[in-house]
């Protein structure tokens, strides 16, 4: 008999008791939550268990929600059991001031870059990762851009010369003042080098 969500839930609760919680099934995929210290134990159990056999890490990413105080960052794992063709998703919540969680690289090679990407964008510290450095952004970057406190650039801003990129109109770092017969461009030195974020 093919594996079903109910059966997976039973196995997990049987093994971990109330440490696995918040079972849901949004759009048919079993989703639950584990404490952050448990992520590796759970992955190992799901991998080794004769019945569950979740041996394929589909993807791993983080979600930032500033409203959840003390558990702002969620690390979301998507696993796939290829022999029974069933997927699950679980989340581990972290405090944004201490974003530490164990790495899954020992179990899945695929986790290596995914964790580096998660570190790059959210600053999650994967304990035990062999090479936790930025991957897509420049090494000199000193913030984690996907966190919600960094909103996207205001598209109506006027202090940037974007004429080459289709936003036109602005003459760059300054404002145009037209008096009776002359046009003066006043430079606003303060605006030069403003942070983009």
């Amino acid at each position: 008999m093919a594996l079903e969500n109910e059966r997976i839930k039973e196995r997990l609760v049987g093994r971990f008791g109330d440490q696995v919680s918040n079972f849901e099934e949004p759009y048919g995929m079993l989703t639950f939550e584990v404490p952050k210290e448990m992520n590796l134990k759970l992955l190992q159990f799901l991998y080794d268990d004769e019945e569950l056999k979740f041996k394929f890490l589909t993807t791993l990413c983080a979600v930032h929600n500033p409203d959840f105080k003390g558990r702002e960052l969620a690390i979301v794992y998507h696993l796939h059991n290829l022999s029974d063709n069933i997927r699950i998703r679980f989340k581990a919540y972290l405090d944004i001031n201490r974003p530490d969680i164990f790495t899954a690289t020992r179990l899945f090679e695929a986790a290596n870059w995914l964790e580096r990407e998660t570190y790059d964008f959210y600053g999650v510290n994967f304990i035990g990762h062999p090479n936790l450095i930025r991957i897509l952004n420049v090494d000199e970057m000193d913030y984690f851009p996907m966190r919600k406190e960094y909103p996207l650039e205001d598209q109506t801003r006027k202090d940037k010369d974007d004429e080459m990129f289709g936003r036109g109109g602005s003459l760059g770092y300054g404002t145009v003042k037209t008096s009776d017969d002359t046009t003066v461009v006043e430079l606003e030195k303060d605006n030069v080098g403003d942070k983009l974020i």
Binding site: T59, C61, H64, E109, A110, N112, W113, E117
Partner: peptide, 13 residues
């Protein structure tokens, strides 16, 4: 939040 699972990114490792 939108996350893309890009196959290339994962297997290039």
């Amino acid at each position: 939040r939108l996350h893309f699972r890009r196959p290339c990114f994962i297997y290039y490792q």
